[in-house]
């Protein structure tokens, strides 16, 4: 399936649940509403034509304005790739777990919970992961987090 065919199929199948984002590249990137996330993920996994059975990557992002969670999926047997992400605008960001769909998500979600402070509903083991057990200095991957010796690189003019 080419990227265009995939776009057409997804538009046909999911309608407005998956909104195509303009990322300026060939591979499609979609936005999902938080309320639809788990359903969409499950349909992408179960759909006979798409069969996204393989989770490439999952993680949080802090763009400075809002938090996002991105999901990169691949299908081993159908050989497709799709990306989608969910924007989190809430003060207490939270996403449902996709562990029941892709067991691989377990560690990725745990890492995201720890480094970004994005809660994962339904996760079975949200405990300290990459950081020390006694860490109490917040979520270091957020843009507003600064260590005492962390010096920001200035913007260079070309």
């Amino acid at each position: 399936m080419t990227h265009d065919e995939l776009r057409a199929y997804v538009a046909d199948k999911f309608g407005d649940k998956l909104t195509l984002l303009d990322t300026g590249r060939a591979e499609p990137m979609y936005e999902v509403k938080l309320s639809d996330l788990h359903d969409v993920a499950e349909s992408l996994r179960k759909d006979e034509t798409l069969q996204f059975d393989y989770l490439c990557n999952l993680g949080g992002t802090d763009t400075g304005e809002r938090l996002e969670v991105h999901y990169q999926l691949a299908s081993i047997y159908k050989n497709n790739r799709i990306d989608f992400k969910v924007m989190l605008t809430d003060d207490k960001p939270s996403v449902p777990t996709v562990q029941d769909i892709w067991p691989a998500a377990n560690w990725y979600e745990r890492e995201m919970w720890e480094l970004y402070g994005i809660n994962v509903e339904g996760h079975n083991n949200l405990t300290r992961f990459l950081l020390p057990d006694d860490w109490d200095q917040g979520h270091p991957m957020r843009k507003d987090w600064d260590a005492p010796d962390f010096i920001r690189l200035p913007e260079f003019k070309g």
Binding site: C56, N57, T61, T63, H70, Q72, E155, F156
Partner: peptide, 19 residues
């Protein structure tokens, strides 16, 4: 081995997520 890269058009990446 994957890299998820977000750029906002500045000299520094917004996000580099490695896998």
């Amino acid at each position: 081995l994957g890299v998820y890269l977000i750029s906002d058009g500045s000299t520094k990446p917004v996000r580099v997520k490695t896998r």
